[in-house]
Amino acid sequence: MTTTALLKKLVAFPVLGGDSNLTIINWIKDYIESFGVACTLVPNLEQTKASLHCRIGPSVDGGIILSGHTDVVPVKGQNWDTDPFVLTNKDDGNLYGRGTCDMKGFLACCLNVLPNLVKADLKKPIYFAFSYDEEIGCLSAPELIRHLQNYYPETPKYAIIGEPSLMQPIIGHKGICLYTTTVNGSAGHSSGIRKEVSAINESARLILWLEAKMNALIDAGHIDLRFTPPHSSLHTGIIHGGIAPNVIADKAYFSWDARVIPSDDISTIVNAFKLHCQQRMQELKKIFPDFEIETKEIHPPVTPFDSKVDSDIVKLISKINANTNFGTVAYASEAGQYNEAGLQSIICGPGSIDQAHRANEFIAKEELIKYVELLHNLMHLFSSETIMKEL
């Protein structure tokens, strides 16, 4: 099948982050196994979702993982000109549909080169590793990575994460975690504000603490000029509380995120916030004994990603990709999780992140052609015993 035909099949699976992905993952599994390559599924506990991995080539150390995710973001409320789950080939050279660039275009390229990979005399193995629930927090990749590393007797060395980057090799991104903080205060008449503990007022103070913490990190020189903005950020995006202007709010909550540069640690920042909350509770329980502040993760932290410019993966990508303008990105991905697991990682994929998550998402057909060429370059590289010894 052509890359476009494969992409058409993949786009037709409307699997959103959080949904069961068994329809698309089983179709991919059947397609791969039709070429004689055994696939392994890594299901969740409920058996409603699964990641997939497989190996093409010999069982020797030093292979490379091609990593992608099977879920997409919702289309509800977006003004699409075409059916988002029907691939539309327009005269402008682009292919339209949800997930075309993020990141089913990458998956289609991998599946397109599979027949040639199977026939190639590979000296090092090439693995496919396709996950679920990436779009709601990169949730399944850690288990997929552990399973893959434990399943095969050999040890993979590299990972290419095919997020849309217009073929630019990306060597860093920030980490992220989302939290909800709930404040339990005391209700009362608004005239008695000094006798009660307003959950809204205390939430506002905590939000200002987060802003002050961000500014303190900047003032202390926690700067990484590779990123925009070049510092860790703490941001509150949702706040709810209260029932009337003249009633002191006894309940409030706010949701916030921490996006950290690789040299900062999310847990250090969050622990400092929780310590401050403990101090506030000790103080305000003197006024209202049942005063509480509770902070919960919305999902586990996504690890920052920082690949060294002198690493072997950078040398490898330079041999197969004409674009050697290495950069960083603001979005998070599974790259940090692969890197943290000991795999030298890099982001490089077809399509533009500017087209992701919006109405009329598209990928240029030229991008798919170029990425298939990159994968064929990888195949030839991994078929060369002389070159592989250099890496």
Rank of each mutant, 00 (worst) to 15 (best):
L52N: 00
V11E: 05
E46A: 13
L41C: 08
H53G: 04
H69E: 03
N112G: 11
P115F: 10
N26D: 11
C110I: 09
C101R: 03
V73G: 02
S51F: 07
A12D: 10
T40N: 11
I25P: 01
N116G: 14
E33H: 11
Q78I: 12
G57D: 06
C39E: 06
V42Y: 03
F13C: 04
L22C: 12
S20I: 09
E33S: 09
G93R: 09
N89G: 11
R98A: 07
L10T: 01
L87K: 01
H69Y: 06
W80Q: 08
S20R: 03
S67M: 10
Q47Y: 12
P115T: 04
K9V: 15
G36E: 09
L111M: 04
K76T: 15
A38W: 14
L52I: 07
V75C: 12
R55F: 07
P58H: 11
V75Q: 10
D81K: 15
H69W: 07
D19H: 07
Y96D: 02
G99Q: 02
F13V: 08
I56N: 00
L107Y: 09
L41A: 12
L66V: 08
G99S: 09
L16Y: 13
L117V: 09
E33Y: 15
V60T: 13
Y96A: 01
L66D: 00
V73N: 06
D83T: 09
I25F: 09
D71Q: 05
G62C: 06
V113S: 02
N89T: 12
K90T: 15
G77S: 09
V37A: 04
